[in-house]
Amino acid sequence: MVDAGARWAAEEVPGGRVREGVRAYFLIAGMWIRSTMAYRTSFVLMTVTNFATTALDFVAILLMFSRVDALGGYSLQQVAFLYGVSSTTFGLADMVIGSMERLGRRVRDGTLDTLLVRPAPVLAQMAADQFALRRLGRTGQGALVLTWALLRLDIDWTPLRVLLMPVMLVSGCAIFCAVFIAGAAFQFVAQDAAEVQNAFTYGGTTLLQYPPTVFATELLRGVTYVLPLAFVNWLPATYVLGLPYPLGLPEWAAFLSPLVAAGCVGLAGLAWRAGLRSYRSTGS
């Protein structure tokens, strides 16, 4: 009575969970890209808006520098360097995984359940949800400012400094991804408190756009030792720029970003698993 053809489905999938997740991610993201193309005008408008929103951040900095020559001892070009790295890495993370902030909403309206009956990791499905290419606007704008800063700055390029640039961008993006994942995990517990994570995501990228010398020591310690956002750009960037980091950390600390990023991603992954487990046992 059983249809023989059905047996293929029971076979295990080749590749591990990570590979399966990445594959599902690209499949779903591709569907979203096609969906947004259904409203082409809106897509163009939103990409421009996304670019402009973030550009206004930088306009504010330009306006400040129209009145002063330095901020916290940093020149406009140096601030632009920090700004560029912060915006580019955050923009990428936001595009790749930013939709995770909608988790609370999906828990509330019950649509998270539809992800749980598909044969792919929920994290990957959630990250790809509402994938929007328009978010490239922010990354593009950040990259533009970064390029401008690099052209205008007179950096003493050593091999280590050159090496640190891509390392900084990749690690920074990973750290922001970890923040997004941890924020989503938190929403399993407090669905209505989605806004808290804005303080760390949007707040984080805004913070890192300004020189570390501007902020109080306690705040610096917080974002260096507790929530290590400083490793996105402050620590590696001060090394590249040849400026001291206010907390007096040894020089090699600038190279810790990849380790810190790996640690953050690992911890965020654990938090996500705990969150999902708690959802599956409480169903709320």
Binding site: M64, R67, V68, D69, A70, L71, G72, A190, Q191, D192, A193, A194, E195, V196, N198, A199, F200, G203, T206, L207, Y210, P211, T213, V214, F215, A216, L219
Partner: peptide, 30 residues
């Protein structure tokens, strides 16, 4: 939306902090 309110207060305070330090540096300069 009580939890959302608390979350919003937290976020506004965090943004306020960032701006206060930035402005302090700005007004120190000028």
């Amino acid at each position: 939306y009580r939890a959302a309110t608390v979350a919003g207060v937290f976020t506004n305070t965090a943004f306020g902090l960032i701006l206060v330090y930035t402005y302090t540096a700005l007004w120190d300069e000028r």
